[in-house]
C-alpha cells in the first residue's frame, strides 16, 4: 500500500540527537560532510569515522535501519571502490591481464568506500532523528540571511511545507485512481515501454486535474486564514539553542581540529 510510505525516514525516539536543535543538526551535517572531503590520510579519516560512528550510536536508531539505507547504494560503493582499486599509480602489487593493483589503488579504494559510507550514515542520522517539518523549519530559518540576496526564503519554505503535507494525500489518490482504472480494465502491467507509458495517461490526467483543484481550494483556504506572504508573520514554534547544542558544536570543532592536526602532522 502506497499510503504506508512515510516521507523521509523519521524514526521517533528520545535520543540525544533527536533533542538537538534542528538548525544545529543541519549545520553539523554540513560540517561533517566538509570534513569527510578534507581527510587526506588514514588518521584523519579515522577521526571522521569515529565521529560518524558516534552519531549513529547517539541517534538511538536501530543499526539495522542504517544498514537498510546503505543497501540502496551498495552497488555504487562497490563500483567506485573497484574502479579506484585498478586506477592506482605506482608499483603493482598484483597484476592480471590489464588489471593491476597498486598500494596506491588499495588506499584510494578504501578512502572512497569509507567516505561514501560515512556520508550516507551521517545524512541518515539527520533524517532519522529530525521530522520533515522540523527540517523544513530549520532550513527556513537558516536560509533567512539569503533573503538579503532577494531569494524568497519564506516562499521556498512554504512550498516545502505544502509539499510535505500533500505528498501522502496525492500518493493515496494515485493508488485510488489506479484501482478505479483497473476496474475498467486498464492494463498497466504488461506490454512494452510505450504501451506502459500510454497506460499511465488514465492515471496521470485525473491526478493532475485533482492536484490543480486541490491547489485552487488550498489557496482559497489560505486566504480565509489571512495568509499574506511572509511579511509580518510570526511563528508559534520558537527554536532555542540549549547547552547540548553548544556541546554538539564543540564536539564538531574538536573533530575539525583533530582532522586538521592529523592532516598536517601525521
Amino acid at each position: 500500500m502506497m499510503r504506508d510510505i512515510t516521507l523521509g525516514q523519521y524514526y521517533p525516539s528520545n535520543g540525544v540527537l533527536h533533542r538537538l536543535d534542528p538548525r544545529i543538526k543541519v549545520l553539523l551535517l554540513i560540517g561533517v560532510i566538509v570534513l569527510i572531503f578534507c581527510t587526506f590520510n588514514f588518521y584523519a579519516l579515522g577521526v571522521v569515522a569515529l565521529l560518524v560512528a558516534a552519531s549513529v550510536i547517539l541517534s538511538k536508531v536501530p543499526v539495522k535501519l542504517y544498514l537498510k539505507s546503505m543497501k540502496a547504494i551498495i552497488l555504487v560503493i562497490l563500483i567506485t571502490s573497484l574502479l579506484n582499486l585498478f586506477y592506482g599509480t605506482g608499483e603493482p602489487i598484483f597484476q592480471w591481464w590489464i588489471f593491476k593493483v597498486t598500494a596506491d589503488g588499495i588506499k584510494n579504494s578504501i578512502y572512497v568506500a569509507v567516505r561514501i559510507i560515512s556520508l550516507v550514515m551521517v545524512s541518515s542520522s539527520l533524517t532519522f532523528t529530525t521530522s520533515p517539518t522540523d527540517l523544513t523549519d530549520a532550513l527556513e530559518r537558516l536560509m533567512k540571511p539569503l533573503s538579503v540576496l532577494k531569494i524568497k526564503t519564506h516562499e521556498i519554505a512554504m512550498m516545502m511545507t505544502i509539499a510535505l503535507r500533500f505528498v501522502p494525500t496525492l500518493l493515496e489518490e494515485t493508488d485510488k485512481i489506479m484501482s478505479a482504472q483497473k476496474a475498467r480494465g486498464a492494463d498497466m502491467e504488461s506490454g512494452n515501454l510505450i504501451r506502459r507509458i500510454k497506460a499511465l495517461i488514465p492515471v496521470l490526467v485525473p491526478l493532475f486535474v485533482s492536484a490543480f483543484r486541490r491547489a485552487y481550494e488550498l489557496a482559497m483556504a489560505m486566504e480565509c486564514r489571512c495568509y499574506q506572504g511572509g511579511e509580518g508573520r510570526t511563528r508559534m514554534k520558537q527554536l532555542h539553542m540549549s547547552a547540548r547544542d553548544f556541546v554538539a558544536l564543540g564536539v564538531l570543532l574538536v573533530a575539525v581540529a583533530g582532522v586538521v592536526l592529523c592532516n598536517i602532522f601525521l
Binding site: E173, K176, A180, Q181, A183, V203, V205, P206
Partner: peptide, 29 residues
C-alpha cells in the same frame, strides 16, 4: 481482467477518474 468486466465496480467519488477528451471516449474506455 475478465472478472473485472463481469463484476463492474464504481468507486467512491468516481468523477475523480475521468480523463478523456470527451465524455463519449471516457465511457468507451
Amino acid at each position: 481482467r475478465n472478472v473485472r468486466f463481469r463484476v463492474g465496480l464504481v468507486f467512491q467519488y468516481p468523477e475523480n477518474q475521468l480523463f478523456e477528451e470527451t465524455v463519449r471516449r471516457d465511457i468507451a474506455f
